[in-house]
Nucleic acid binder design. Structure first.
Lengths: 200, 200
DNA sequence: TCCAAAATAGAGTAAATACTCTAATAAAAA
DNA sequence: TTTTTATTAGAGTATTTACTCTATTTTGGA
């Protein structure tokens, strides 16, 4: 059975996803859980600390998804798609973050700092990841160096905003829609995929 | 000189952009403007009506940007870039909307309905717009029909989320960054651009 | 000039929010 | 067992928020 602290994070995440952070008060969270506000504040200094803790959980799960399988791993599109798929699933779990990030960072400078650090790290990691695919001859890029950054940025954006985009279109998110998101990224990379390397 | 009603919308927009809608109360807006709350509520039924009015203004400006210049207009990349540039500028002016849309729609079902209608309309318009470019031989697409929708979706997403993406990266938005956003979209279209048609 | 309608001021309020404080209970350690 | 520490309950509070109400002023037309 989960400890109170973990239960708060879990329930808060669900409620934030459903109603948005500003509509969900600490009192709401406590009463939904059937605990007292005193208890909730025993575990968390304030609402922002709850949000920051959720962020840290998300970061941990994200890191697991994106770690390179092993040192002798051969980059291929099937694995890439699997990773993108898992990233989409994480976004689903922590939807509110992707929706409200900018405002949340405005309200909480600590979260802002933390996010900025993480984001910078990830950018570097992803670039290295991408390089694997070029070195592994799965992707073949023009001499123009800048194109790597550009493609990476676009892929990142699709990966980050596809679900939000669906939401603004009032489409509900199904496994099928996630595959469509993967497809979008593949379309961007398509012109640069080397048909000889990796399995499509 | 602007009427009170217009001034409220203008000031509210600025404040929402700076601090986020949930941090800006109707009292804040009134006092920033140096008017009474009574006065503000004389012009607007509630806070949501303010937000909806701002949305309508944004829609109007957007429509001006995207109307096809004239019936005998020849599609070309220079004009396309100009339109994208103006769209980015609109996003800058109404930043808070792009950041908070999903939550705002959750809070206000009227806004949600309205946005959904507008969004659907625009999708159709943009598709027609895109078709101009194909018919005008500026773009050449593979027989695969689905690719049109895919490219359109990706372009739309970049156009809608590029500035938000920059914000999460803590980069401030300059004219230069806007050009970079245009470049992103062009990179996506690049493999399908017919070098003979239109001027790059 | 007069008057009805439009615009404004500003005091007032119910509800909600984030959080504190103290006392009680449960769990762990000695 | 006893004692210390970790949890929990729940009443209480200062502040804020969205919004109302009434009285006053301004404005534009007849």
């Amino acid at each position: 059975m989960l400890k109170t602290k973990e239960k708060v994070l879990e329930t808060a995440t669900l409620m934030f996803n459903q109603e948005g952070t500003s509509s969900v008060s600490t009192n709401h969270i406590a009463s939904r859980l059937g605990i007292s506000t005193g208890n909730l504040y025993y575990h968390f200094k304030n609402k922002e600390e709850i949000i920051r803790s959720i962020f840290e959980k998300m970061v941990q799960e994200w890191d697991i998804v994106w770690q390179v399988p092993s040192s002798d791993w051969q980059p291929n599109l099937v694995d890439l798609k699997a990773i993108i798929r898992q990233t989409f699933q994480l976004q689903l779990k922590y939807q509110f973050f992707y929706r409200e990030l900018i405002v949340l960072m405005k309200i909480d400078p600590l979260l802002k700092d933390r996010h900025q650090k993480i984001q910078a790290q990830r950018m570097t990691e992803q670039k290295r990841f991408f390089q694997h695919f070029i070195n592994g001859d799965v992707l073949r890029l023009p001499h123009d160096e800048a194109i790597i950054d550009t493609l990476l940025t676009i892929s990142w954006m699709i990966n980050n905003y596809w679900l939000a985009f669906l939401e603004t279109n009032n489409e509900d998110i199904s496994a099928d829609k996630i595959e469509q998101g993967i497809q979008l990224i593949m379309t961007v990379l398509e012109p640069y995929i080397n048909r000889d390397g990796g399995i499509t």
